[in-house]
Amino acid sequence: MSRVIIQLIINGLLAGGIYALVSIGLCLIFGVVEVINFAHGEFLMLGMYTTYWLFYFFKIDPYLSLLIVIPLSFLIGVITQRVLIQPLLDAPPLNQIFVTMGLSILLQNVALILWKATYRTIKTTYSSWFIKSGGLSISFPRLLACIVASGITVALLIFLKKTYVGKAIRAIAQDKRGATLMGINVHRMYQLTFGLGTVCVGIAGAILMPIYYAFPTVGLLFCLTAFAVVIVGGYNSLTGAFIAGFVIGLIESFSGFFISPHLQQGVYFAIVILVLLFKPSGLLGLKES
């Protein structure tokens, strides 16, 4: 195998780790609350800007800023659920889509007014570190981001499997009425789920900051990618979303090199359409136990 191929695999996996973290938040909300959160990308954008301003004003390292980003994201998620989604739980599902769409447009443009369309990034001491070996080069901040993202994703999966709260959330995802009868407070669990999902994407925003740019519409791109990941991974499988994150990362890196950088996303959206048409339960066909 040529070095180029290995480099493409590495790049794909590094991007995939972030995609997995962004998507698992979306997938969690989708699976439990049954809402496609169109504002998911904007929550990523907020995470990025929070990190950016903390660094800009107080020189706080992006990874340290997680201490602030995490509770903030959680709060945003809970409030979104409480204020926007909860009144619409019995409405047709499309209304929930429309309301999150509204939130997405709102946040994008508030960001545009407040912070302008400027591309902003931050320079940390490790921003330009590279690990070089055998003709391959791995960007250190990207590797770090990928490892942290994967670590958090795995931690979330364990949390859902092992703890009482996690089990309650999964119970609701499987049978809402049954869970209510077992004494689970569905509304509170929905808020918690929305909070957790938003924390995932908020963290992703923070750790993206050293390697990517913050701008008002940055979320759209990641949100669409997350849709692709969730569809390919199977909408009711978090493990599926985790793996599919890497799969989409790889598809992106390979199609960018072999077909055209213009068609990177085109290729995986075409895959999304095919998956939806022929195997709507997801390409990986994993079942959550």
Binding site: P92, F227, F269, L276, P280
Partner: peptide, 27 residues
Amino acid sequence: PCFKLKSHFFVIATISIGEVLRRVTSY
């Protein structure tokens, strides 16, 4: 084929079509 999908997935499928066409047009 898309009409067989439940509302959420219909939305995502139709979004994807627009995105694919935009990229193909740019390319």
